[in-house]
Design a protein around this nucleic acid. Structure first.
Length: 679
DNA sequence: TGAGGCCTAAACAGGC
DNA sequence: CGCCTGTTTAGGCCTC
């Protein structure tokens, strides 16, 4: 970086501003991005590793030093001008600049030079002045707050003592507590102010925060403090501040050694924010403070001491008692390179853990939110984990209990959940085509498919959840739902796509399966009709192929429920509750909206949710909510164009008779042009 | 472990 | 020829 500035031929001897800009840049660049030669004392950097933030003064001083160096170079160049090319002449000395500056003993700069340099700064002198004034004002404020806080503390203690003796005046206590609270809020505001100031300095490049240093976590930490911690912090601030004040006068002398050696004060701001920054140069408020707290209050419970072993990372030295531990701590883990490095590593570990914790918390929150929603509705509509779900929830909640809200026949409800399908969303297809897809139980276990479909109609329509029924059962259901108990193949197709979002994609696959099932199973009888062939159901044959009935066997039902990934609790409820509805092929909207069934199902479902929720939540998590319109994959529609002629034929009767509420958007699946027009 | 059920894929044929 | 419908076969997975 320095090379690119100094060795470059671009840099002419007169371009001091350029030099300062680069110098400024480097001084404001995190150490990890820097060249091995920092602008201030490399020795200090390596040995202490404590200076992590550069104060404005330090920067000014460095700039002045470089300016001096540059002036010297210019003088030398003037003396040797014509002897060497500027390029070569610049190159070597320029590289030395930072080092020489760093190692140089402080020198006095004339006011003219100072003025010159300041004029060439990236920041104007006025800006610097303002920043310095801001810092001083903050310091002043802090002092005032500190004094005020002390007074408050004394007052509080006095009052507490008085009240202990008198045992009265809870009102005053409240007032004091309120004052304390207000003051703590003031403290927090103060810290916020300082944080903002810190950030502003950072943005302006005047202050360097090392990557990984908790400049931002500082605020949450401060906010998370309990009053006692704040109090302790103030004590530490007080001591550190007074220490800083003692060395503060040296700053004005622009003494590099003082500034750097007083690495205990790398910057006023950081010092204010964190007195412990002096120990390792990192803004760590929380851990050391807690350490000291616990150390004071519980002398023998040190976070670094436990079970007779020093818990310093990588140490594990055996200390027989606490005193020996303290000796060990002071001797082996004193403030040196190793300790500070280890501390920094530990800090990064903590940061990583905090990051992980935050992520896990977020995940937990999402899970809880999701489960809470699930527990309030008998059959959750697809709940994508995004902000749209809030709309979806309220909507689906009303949809899930259609008895509460009568359907408006012309308004498809699902399009309110505008969740687009994206690769980031785990689709139910991907989830269910592998595992649970095999678990079809309705045939075997006599779970009324019509009830399930009726109760979860909206769910199936909107969620790409594979229905837990075999193709044969679905085909039979489709046929039985028709007024004449017969359907053409295309009508069966339409029924599938209309009733299940799942079957709006991969049409070639499932249609092939439908045809395969129609041909394979004897229960499906092909009847030649005037318009062609229609399919009917031979119930006798259908019952024949379901010999394994376990209805009435609770244990098997339970196993079925627990092992089933779809709609299990609801089916369990329906198993017991919806016999009134059972296998009525032509269920109506009224039957769908039976409040008793719905409530009972919900109640039973809640009772069962302990073991089932996770499966359902998985299901729901993997079921992206989507509107039917969006769920209709245009590609698939085009791949498998449905016959609009059929839609106007017998199918219209079927849908009109049975699903008038959804007829309009059912048509959308059947009539592609309309669908696209609507979209 | 084997049988049966189910799903998926594919080939093939006939009709429109 | 392409598409739809219908049949058949094969393989794999799952449950019992």
């Amino acid at each position: 970086m320095f090379q690119c500035v100094f060795s470059s031929s671009v840099l002419q001897p007169h371009s001091t501003s350029c030099l300062f800009k680069h110098l400024f840049y480097h001084s404001a660049t995190p150490a990890s991005q820097k060249q091995p030669e920092p602008i201030y004392s490399k020795k200090t950097e390596i040995q202490r590793q404590t200076v992590r933030a550069h104060s404005v003064k330090l920067f000014i001083f460095s700039a002045l030093q470089v300016a001096r160096q540059l002036l010297l170079q210019q003088q030398q160049q003037q003396q040797v001008s014509g002897l060497k090319s500027p390029k070569r002449n610049d190159k070597q000395p320029a590289l030395q600049v930072p080092v020489s500056v760093a190692m140089m003993t402080p020198q006095v700069i004339t006011p003219q030079q100072m003025q010159q340099i300041l004029q060439q700064q990236v920041l104007s002198p006025q800006q610097l002045q303002v920043l310095l004034q801001q810092q001083q004002a903050l310091m002043l404020q802090q002092q005032q707050l500190q004094e005020f806080y002390k007074k408050q503390q004394e007052q509080l203690q006095l009052q507490l003592l008085q009240q202990q003796h008198a045992g009265k005046q809870p009102k005053e206590q409240q007032q004091v507590a309120t004052q304390q609270l207000a003051f703590q809020q003031q403290l927090l505001q103060m810290q916020q102010l300082q944080q903002q100031h810190l950030l502003s300095l950072q943005r302006q490049g005047l202050l360097t925060i090392q990557p990984g240093q908790p400049a931002l976590p500082l605020q949450p930490l401060a906010q998370g403090m309990i009053p006692t911690e704040l109090q302790q912090l103030w004590k530490e601030v007080t001591s550190a501040h007074s220490a800083e004040e003692t060395t503060g006068s040296n700053h004005s002398s622009l003494d590099l050694t003082t500034t750097c050696v007083s690495s205990s004060a790398p910057s006023k701001t950081s010092l204010i924010m964190n007195p412990h920054a002096s120990t390792n140069g990192q803004l760590s408020v929380h851990t050391p403070k807690r350490e000291s707290l616990s150390h004071e209050e519980h002398p023998h419970s040190h976070p670094l001491y436990g079970h007779g072993v020093c818990k310093w990372p990588g140490c594990e030295a055996v200390c027989e008692d606490f005193q020996s531990f303290l000796k060990h701590l002071n001797s082996e883990h004193a403030l040196d390179d190793r300790s500070t490095a280890q501390c920094r590593v530990q800090m990064q570990v903590v940061q990583q853990l905090e990051l992980q914790l935050a992520k896990d918390k977020e995940r937990l929150q999402a899970m809880m939110t999701h489960l809470h929603v699930k527990s309030t509705e008998p059959k959750a509509a697809p709940q994508p984990l995004n902000l749209v779900s809030s709309v979806t929830l309220s909507k689906s909640a009303s949809e899930a209990s259609p008895q509460s809200l009568p359907h408006t026949p012309t308004t498809p409800t699902a399009p309110i959940t505008p969740v687009t399908q994206g690769p980031s969303v785990i689709t139910t297809t991907s989830m269910h085509t592998v595992g649970p897809i095999r678990r079809r139980y309705s045939d075997k276990y006599n779970v009324p498919i019509s009830s399930d479909i009726a109760q979860n109609q909206e769910f199936y329509k909107n969620a790409e959840v594979r229905p837990p029924f075999t193709y044969a059962s679905l085909i039979r259901q489709a046929i039985l739902e028709s007024p004449e108990k017969q359907l053409t193949l295309n009508e069966i197709y339409n029924w599938f796509t209309r009733m299940f979002a799942y079957f709006r994609r991969n049409a070639a696959t499932w249609k092939n399966a439908v045809r395969h099932n129609l041909s394979l199973h004897k229960c499906f009888v092909r009847v030649e009709n005037v318009k062609g062939a229609v399919w009917t159901v031979d119930e006798v044959e259908f019952q024949k192929r379901r010999p394994q009935k376990i209805s009435g066997n609770p244990s098997l039902i339970k196993n079925m429920q627990t092992s089933h990934a779809y709609c299990t609790p609801l089916n369990a409820a329906l198993q017991q509750a919806s016999m009134a509805e059972n296998s009525i092929p032509l269920y109506t909207t009224a039957s769908m909206g039976n409040p008793t069934l719905g409530n009972l199902a919900s109640a039973i479902r809640e009772e069962l949710n302990g073991a089932m929720e996770h499966t359902n939540s998985n299901e729901s998590d993997s079921s992206p909510g989507r509107s039917p319109l969006q769920a209709v994959h245009p590609v698939h529609v085009k791949e498998e164009p449905l016959d609009p002629e059929e839609a106007e034929g017998p199918l219209s009767l079927v849908t009109t008779a049975n699903h008038s509420p959804d007829f309009d958007h059912d048509r959308d699946y059947e009539d592609e042009p309309v669908n696209e027009d609507m979209e």
